[in-house]
């Protein structure tokens, strides 16, 4: 967690702070999160936001409801953060997921990483997001505009825990083929 003291952007010294790993019911203040990873040791900052999409396969979403098993979710998020740090050179890592009822356009998840170099930042942010969707015990329920609702429980991945099933084009060995800079 960061303190409340204001730091000049980019003026942070080289001490490492604890990663921000959090489930929260309040809206995600992504500007503050981005500022929190900026650092003089970092030449790159990558932000990924997951936002509630209004249209899925022609159906209109009225609201998404997120639920988690917090003790295990936080443990798995911490494991992802540690995996990111093993695989890429990172300065700061922020993984925040929102819980509760979200309307279209609202931010459900934020991944923010800073790194000395852009390649590591892009790859780490992408991998973090893939892992969050695969292993962290968080669930969403679609509430459709027509009044129906259903839990989203993807089939075929109940046992998807081994890393080889989850690494796709985002592994550093394969280079950055799957990542397109803005």
């Amino acid at each position: 967690m960061w303190g409340s003291q204001e730091l000049r952007p980019g003026a942070r010294r080289a001490e490492r702070r604890q990663a921000v790993i959090r489930l929260q019911r309040e809206p995600i203040d992504y500007v503050r999160l981005v500022e929190s990873v900026r650092h003089t040791a970092a030449g790159a900052v990558v932000l990924f936001l997951g936002t509630v999409r209004e249209l899925t396969a022609g159906r209109i979403t009225r609201m998404l409801e997120y639920e988690a098993y917090p003790p295990l979710a936080e443990k798995e998020l911490t494991a992802i953060e540690q995996e990111l740090r093993r695989r890429w050179q990172l300065t700061e890592v922020v993984l925040v997921h929102r819980l509760g009822q979200l309307s279209p356009g609202e931010i459900s998840v934020a991944v923010v990483v800073s790194s000395p170099h852009r390649q590591d930042a892009f790859l780490a942010a992408r991998h973090a997001m893939e892992r969050i969707k695969q292993v962290v015990p968080i669930w969403k329920k679609e509430h459709w505009a027509d009044g129906t609702s259903e839990w989203v429980h993807p089939s075929g991945e109940t046992l998807a825990t081994s890393p080889h099933q989850t690494n796709r084009s985002d592994s550093p060995e394969k280079g950055a083929a799957g990542v397109t800079p803005p």
Binding site: A68, Y69, L72, K133, V135, I138, W139, W151
Partner: peptide, 10 residues
Amino acid sequence: VAVLPPVSGG
């Protein structure tokens, strides 16, 4: 013991 359906965060 926690019963955990297939996850769908994100």
